[in-house]
Amino acid sequence: MSETGTRINKFLSEQGYCSRRAADKLIEQERVTINGSVPEMGTKVMADDIVAVDGELISKKKEKLVYLAFNKPVGIVCTTDTRVEKNNIIDFINYPTRIFPIGRLDKPSEGLILLTNDGDIVNKILRSRNNHGKEYIVTVDHSINDRFIQRMSTGIPILDTVTKDCEVEAIGRKTFRIVLTQGLNRQIRRMCEFLDYRVTKLKRVRIINIELDVPVGEYRHLTEDELTELKRLTANSDKAYVPSPDDDMD
């Protein structure tokens, strides 16, 4: 920590407690204290300060960084707020040290989600959506055709915008593969609904260079090669990007 201090949201992120975005929410909810007092947004933590969340002291010792690839089952909620959601991802995995998900998959969706205690990599991966894809296998309620593939791949008007061009390929009568470089709220479901289709199954199978290769409900640690490549690919992420509350809820 520098002599001029570290902003409280960055401090919590660097300690592996949560992402900066999640830290901002904790600060807004007045669940964070510095030396026993509730700080304002942007308050800096100095070397001798005592930081706590919900009364729990935050150690200034760096834990070993953890990077997990998890195959999320349907019905599990991607939240770290274990007080609110019974079927939350943190309780389900029950990892021995504190971790948090990078982005989200909505409750009815399944597949790959990354978890970590490295707050710095979270923003880089979320920002990287402008350059790198997330791949999904999607099943809908009736047969797809060439028009459906063309419309899905060239932009659909949802949420007061038009989705970016993306790669879409039919792989079955009712099933297609799609690679997104966006993460709008329930994006794939909304795109399909615009074309009068309903998603019956949605599975994420890749995030940037990380492939889904574990059974449903299980996780593995990223390999050194995967992590090195992931950091390389996200190194130049757009620093101007600010993650929204609805990131990756496809």
Score class of each variant (00 low, 15 high):
S2L: 02
S2R: 00
E3S: 00
I8Y: 04
I8H: 06
I8R: 03
N9A: 11
K10R: 15
F11A: 01
S13Q: 08
E14F: 00
S19A: 10
D24M: 01
D24Q: 00
K25Q: 13
L26F: 14
E30A: 12
R31W: 09
I34L: 12
G42T: 00
K44C: 00
I50L: 08
V53S: 07
D54G: 15
D54Q: 08
G55N: 09
K62C: 02
K62F: 03
K64I: 08
L65H: 07
Y67I: 08
Y67T: 09
L68S: 10
A69T: 08
N71C: 08
P73H: 02
V74M: 08
I76G: 07
C78L: 10
D81F: 07
T82D: 15
R83Y: 06
K86A: 13
N88L: 12
I90K: 11
P96T: 03
L105K: 08
L105G: 08
K107L: 06
K107D: 05
S109K: 06
L112F: 10
D118N: 14
G119E: 09
D120T: 06
V122N: 08
I125G: 03
I125N: 05
L126M: 13
S128L: 06
G133Q: 05
G133V: 07
K134P: 04
Y136V: 04
S143E: 15
R147L: 14
Q150G: 03
I156S: 10
P157Y: 04
L159S: 14
T161S: 14
V162N: 04
T163K: 05
K164L: 14
C166I: 09
R173L: 12
F176V: 02
V179N: 03
T181R: 15
T181M: 11
G183A: 02
L184H: 09
I188S: 07
E193G: 01
L195A: 05
Y197L: 14
R198K: 15
R198W: 03
R198V: 08
R198S: 13
R198P: 01
V199H: 05
T200E: 15
K201F: 12
K203A: 01
V205D: 11
R206Q: 14
N209P: 03
I210R: 10
D213M: 06
G217F: 01
Y219V: 02
E226T: 03
T228N: 03
E229R: 01
E229I: 00
L230Q: 01
L230M: 11
T234N: 06
T234L: 10
S237H: 12
D238Y: 14
K239P: 03
K239D: 14
A240V: 01
Y241M: 11
V242Y: 02
S244H: 12
D248H: 05
D250Y: 15
